[in-house]
Amino acid sequence: MPVTVALYDGRVDQPNPRTSISPAEVAHVARLARLALSEEELSMYTTQLAAVLGHAADIAALDIEGTPPTAHPFPLADVFREDEPRPGLDRDEVLSQAPDVEGPYFRIPRIMGDAP
């Protein structure tokens, strides 16, 4: 049995039956994912994402009246570990993988704004 979870406030969007996406929307998503796309890529992904949306629209068209929402394809819930410390990684090894470090820290370029 799949695990079902009742959604408490209905804030989850209803499946969107759209089958198209504009190049501007693809550019927006690419920016959120920090991807620099060429014009050809933008056009290619616009076509590909429209196909994905079409697939989602097919699913959205199904009659799911009476079918509870599914949290996970595995019939599992409540997988835990106990609150017991385990050794992690060696700091020198960890920092040696980083592009830039300063003392015991990862060093990163100047950033704009607060964390979200």
Binding site: P87, G88, L89, G103, P104
Partner: peptide, 15 residues
């Protein structure tokens, strides 16, 4: 399983 401890040496509780 990394320790949740305030004030430890930086980047020592990582995995």
């Amino acid at each position: 399983g990394c320790r949740n401890a305030f004030g430890d040496e930086p980047n020592t509780n990582v995995c």
